[in-house]
Simulated assay, not measured.
Amino acid sequence: MPAHLWLPPSGHGPGVLVLQEIFGVSDYIQRRCADLAALGYVVLAPEIYWRIGTLRVDESREDFLEQALALVQRVDWDAALADSVTALATLRARPEVAGGVGVAGFCFGGGLAFHVAAAAEPDVLVSYYGSALPRLLDLAPRVTAPSLHHFGTDDAYIPMHQVEAIRDAVAGPEVEFHLHPGAGHAFDNPHPVFHHPQAATSAWATTTRFLADHLPVR
């Protein structure tokens, strides 16, 4: 399975597994990985689409969203979960990693990260608008890691009644759940179709603080 690795300036630190949105390990996802590395984390981003022979969607095409939605339908979820759990174990075993390992995901990857957290017990979970979460809520009792969830209140793919059901299911003493007013799905993605600057800025500030609290860089 192809994967991308970023090392922090120190060359070592806690690990963060980053799981892609439906467009693949896009330029945007790679920038977020670089942002995490700059904070002191060892970051690994596996190419989850590798089994279907396509690594990413061409976001310069007008039909890029339709492309991505068709592509994600071809993913074998169980295989993607197994690959992600393997990637987490690989990251944890790397000599550069010290101080724990977390998992973070965006969109498709947000739901996948939640399932990984239920299956493999990472030290922390960050999920941005996890699109699969409505069908994974029976796993919530198995997610014991400190967890952070972000959702926009205007998400066309995950309506508010589902967001509220997710919030109720995952609630716990070490769970933070943030709603971003006026933001739609994929609000952190800088593409003009999705981007909500205020929500993106606020969510990233919360994410960096949450990681500093629960997966500190020494």
Rank of each mutant, 00 (worst) to 15 (best):
M1R: 09
P2C: 06
P2S: 11
A3G: 10
S10E: 15
G11T: 11
G11E: 05
G15L: 01
L17S: 00
L17P: 04
Q20W: 05
G24D: 11
Q30N: 08
D35S: 08
D35Y: 04
L36Q: 00
G40D: 07
V43R: 00
L44I: 02
W50K: 03
W50E: 13
I52S: 05
L55C: 13
L65E: 12
L65A: 09
L65H: 09
A68Q: 07
L71K: 05
W77M: 00
A79P: 13
A80G: 12
D83G: 14
T86F: 10
T86Y: 14
A89K: 15
L91Q: 10
R94S: 05
R94H: 07
A98S: 14
A98Y: 02
G99P: 04
G100I: 03
A104N: 12
G105N: 08
F108N: 04
L112V: 15
F114P: 01
H115L: 08
V116F: 09
E121Y: 11
L136F: 08
A140P: 15
P141Q: 09
S147E: 11
H149S: 14
G152D: 01
A156E: 14
A156C: 11
P159I: 12
V170G: 03
G172D: 07
G172I: 12
F177C: 06
A183Y: 05
A183R: 01
A186F: 03
A186Q: 02
D188S: 11
H196L: 04
P197F: 04
A199Q: 04
A199S: 13
A200I: 10
T201A: 14
T206C: 12
T208E: 11
L215E: 06
P216K: 00
